[in-house]
Amino acid sequence: MKLQLLALSAYLSFAAALTTIRGSISPSQQLPNPSVLPADTTITLTTSGAQYYTRLRADNTFVFRNVSEGSYLLDTACSTHHFAPLRVDVARDGEVKVAQTFRGNPWSNVGEKKGVPIELQPVKAAEYYVTREGFNPMKMLGSPMILIAIFSVISMMFLPKLMDKMDPEFMAELEEQKKKRAATAQNQPNPLANFDMASFLAGRSKPSSPAPPAQEQERGGKRK
């Protein structure tokens, strides 16, 4: 009796070992109309030593026939959209369990359970191209450097006019200050004119010979 039962169960398990797995791609936000997917969109079930593959059907479903027991990785190869992988476990009695899986995670780590039949949804549309950034005047105007330049140009043009409208007394004071500054500037040698490139590059902070400043002063005088 027991033997018979065993035989029966063995027979049943054998008979049920081949399962049909169904699934579909339903409309979603990323893909309102799944019928636009290319005709060669393929779905594969892979595990060691066994691989099943099928194409997406015209009604956006897919069927794997005669899948044997195992723990499979379901991948969708589609040239226009990117799909996340799924884990599909087919038990000995033909029961199918589907779970979310992440690539690189240990396989023993079963992810969030999903319903059967399988529902696939794209994660993202594939974008193959990069558009070359051409010359864009509006974008150029938006850059901070250009904004600074424009601002300084405007202030250069409008400041003198603003000055004209200012209080004459304050104006006079400003003139005075300006003159003073100009006078000191005349007496002081231009620091740039005195710059010794060679010694700067050589790492010496001060020029070794004291003669040049006098010369420079003379030249500065000539410029008047």
Partner: peptide, 17 residues
């Protein structure tokens, strides 16, 4: 290569793929 945890159980669990 295609690696599979099922065939030889790896300590810590290998990734299938």
């Amino acid at each position: 290569y295609f690696g599979d945890d099922d065939v030889v159980s790896t300590p810590g669990g290998a990734a299938k793929g």
